[in-house]
Amino acid sequence: MEENKTSELRILFAEDNEVNRFYLRSLFEQHFKGMLILEAKNGREAVEIYEAYRPNLVLLDLNMPIMGGNEAAVTIKQLAETNGDKPRIIALTGNSLNVDDGAHNQEAIDDYIIKPFTAEALLTLLSPVIVDGKNIEESTDNLEITIEGDILHDKRHFNYEELERSLANDRQLINEVLTYVLNSLDTFLPRFRNLITEGNQEQIQKLAHELRGTALNARLPLLSEYALLLENQASFDEDFLLEHLKRIDEEIKDVKPLLAAMLD
């Protein structure tokens, strides 16, 4: 299989969700060799990294702490104009309303993609910048994976077929993502409980946003819905939070065996 020639490509992505960063990093490392991959946890880090490396492709999550994607995009665009560079800036958003109501900065951002997205959709969007790149369908073995039994009959819990499509049927990448998600799911409940004890509603919402991003990437629809309920809860209501945290706990216990069953 011929490798994609991307030695001239420098790509920076900024994403506050650890699972999302892992997903993007694994995707680029798996399918594009020789690419300089740079990553940031917030917009301020993205600006600092851009100044140091001047990447020609920048992906920015719109909803990040310290500095959001819109502000980072404007700053990076200004720096680029000063240097005579023309980076392509892509917005990553988990909310279609951000697109519909023009919440992304149309002057600084060249394009956008709504999370969760497939590997093929993302790489197609990036193709104008990828030097001598090939479509992911041409650079990925087309694996046929048969699911036996009825373990995945209810796609409300885990939509494995959609996960396959999102990762272009790449068995190695699927295993890596599933393993990473399984390990991360165990960390959410203790963190939620600590924040509820502290009465810190703002951080509860941020953690719920992180959980929703993880669930969306892993194609766990019901868990994503439960996380969204917590994310949208603006005021601190301990009874409400504990009730929904119980649902999240039960759903995590339900989906973990499903995820584990699909590992090679």
Rank of each mutant, 00 (worst) to 15 (best):
M1E: 02
E2A: 00
N4R: 11
T6Y: 03
E8V: 01
L9S: 04
R10D: 10
L12P: 07
L12M: 00
F13H: 11
E15I: 07
E15M: 08
N17H: 06
N20D: 10
F22W: 08
Y23V: 15
Y23A: 01
R25Y: 12
F28N: 03
F28Y: 11
E29G: 08
Q30I: 04
L36K: 13
L36E: 14
N42A: 02
N42D: 14
R44T: 02
R44D: 12
E45Y: 01
A46V: 07
E48M: 07
A52W: 01
Y53Q: 13
P55Q: 05
N56C: 11
N56L: 00
V58F: 02
V58M: 04
V58L: 08
D61Q: 03
L62H: 06
L62G: 06
M67G: 02
G68T: 05
G68N: 13
N70R: 05
I76E: 03
K77R: 15
K77C: 03
K77G: 01
Q78P: 00
Q78T: 10
A80S: 10
D85W: 00
K86P: 01
I89A: 03
I90K: 09
L92K: 06
N98H: 15
V99H: 01
D100N: 14
D101A: 09
D101Q: 14
A103F: 11
H104L: 14
Q106W: 03
Q106T: 13
E107I: 13
I113T: 07
A121L: 08
L122Q: 05
L122P: 09
S127Y: 08
P128Q: 05
V131H: 11
G133Y: 03
K134M: 14
I136F: 03
I136L: 15
E137C: 01
N142E: 14
L143G: 02
E144N: 13
T146Y: 11
I147T: 15
I147G: 00
E148F: 10
G149C: 08
H153L: 10
H157K: 12
E161A: 10
R165M: 11
S166L: 02
L167F: 02
D170V: 03
D170R: 01
L173A: 00
L173V: 07
I174H: 03
I174K: 04
N175F: 04
T179Y: 00
Y180L: 01
N183F: 01
D186Q: 08
R193V: 09
I196A: 03
T197G: 02
E198M: 13
G199L: 09
N200C: 03
Q201R: 11
Q201N: 13
Q201E: 09
Q203F: 11
Q203Y: 10
L207I: 06
A208Q: 08
L211V: 05
T214R: 02
L216Q: 14
A218F: 05
R219S: 15
P221Q: 06
L223I: 09
L223Y: 04
S224G: 14
L228M: 00
L228Y: 10
L229M: 13
L229V: 11
Q233E: 15
Q233L: 12
Q233S: 12
Q233M: 04
Q233K: 15
A234Q: 15
S235Q: 15
S235H: 14
E238P: 10
L241Y: 10
L241W: 09
L242N: 15
L242D: 10
L242P: 01
H244L: 04
R247T: 08
I248Y: 07
D249W: 06
E250A: 12
E250Q: 12
E251A: 04
E251C: 11
P257E: 02
L258T: 04
L259N: 00
A260C: 00
